[in-house]
Design a protein around this nucleic acid. Sequence first.
DNA 1: CGCTTCCTTCAGAAATTTGTGAAGTTAAGG
DNA 2: CCTTAACTTCACAAATTTCTGAAGGAAGCG
Lengths: 165, 165
Amino acid sequence: MSEPSEADRDPETVSRFVEHFAAHLVEAGLPRMPARVFVALLASDTGVLTSAELGETLKISPAAVSGAVRYLAQQHMVSREREPGSRRERYRVHGDQWYEALANRDAVIRRWEDALREGVTSLGEATPAGRRLAETLAFLEFVEKELEAMMERWRTHREERFGRG
Amino acid sequence: MSEPSEADRDPETVSRFVEHFAAHLVEAGLPRMPARVFVALLASDTGVLTSAELGETLKISPAAVSGAVRYLAQQHMVSREREPGSRRERYRVHGDQWYEALANRDAVIRRWEDALREGVTSLGEATPAGRRLAETLAFLEFVEKELEAMMERWRTHREERFGRG
DNA sequence: CGCTTCCTTCAGAAATTTGTGAAGTTAAGG
DNA sequence: CCTTAACTTCACAAATTTCTGAAGGAAGCG
């Protein structure tokens, strides 16, 4: 029998995890292909894969890889690198970068806030509906601030536990 | 110019806000009908609407209302009430209930954690991939605890600012 | 320069999701 | 009980989304 070493990178084991975890992300609202690509990167040993490798392990066309990666890059969940002196593009999931993507939700929150402010104004601050919207707005403003503080605490916590990544 | 009173509840103004804010929620992953129904409730003066009222303001069939409401109830974003001695069902968005739904994300996070733990085990704790997954897991565990604390702080903050709802 | 490699874009096929009408279910009211 | 009101469920039609294959660029390499 084989040693429990790198040899355990049985493609099937990896694939099982990829599909399983990706399914959860999909359920949470991430499009299918981006989810699969993202998890494949997370589960790779170097955290870097080429487009071709992604296509092969996930059994999808180059076009699908391209689309998924574009999506992920927009969300700042992966970064693209150019291998110098080669046409190969490499995609990387930076350990932290992915947490920071969560902080990126910030942008989303801020747009919600804008919409709510408009609602408070147009419905009237003094109306019950206006007050309800105002409270929701206050909640989001609160969360926004808290998230920032939380990420700061995480960075500290992380260094204690994992050392500088 | 007109007084900012209840007279401002021009259906068209309300509708504009509903559609606008709902669009943001959809973009964030909420299905369309649930999003519209939810915002319609948020923007109503009492925070309570009957199925018929929802159908009329949103111009959708009873079936669509039914489906949307079922979804929202499952997510704990609205609650259903039975008007005693009537067949009419009423749907309510409780001011806080909706924040607490965010805490409900807890359940989602916990399932992610389970999937990640499995991944760490099957890929091997000692492998680079395993370590990456372990760190992601640690992040989620951290967030889970923080969220709870955050909600607690919000409740305090809220009372200071709005008095007990 | 032209060839080759790799990625992207585009149009369309396939699959999934979404919303409706119609029939079914439950419960109030006569 | 029978009628009527209100919501729900189901099957299907419609719209949207998703992925592919094919054609179209950019960039290294000879």
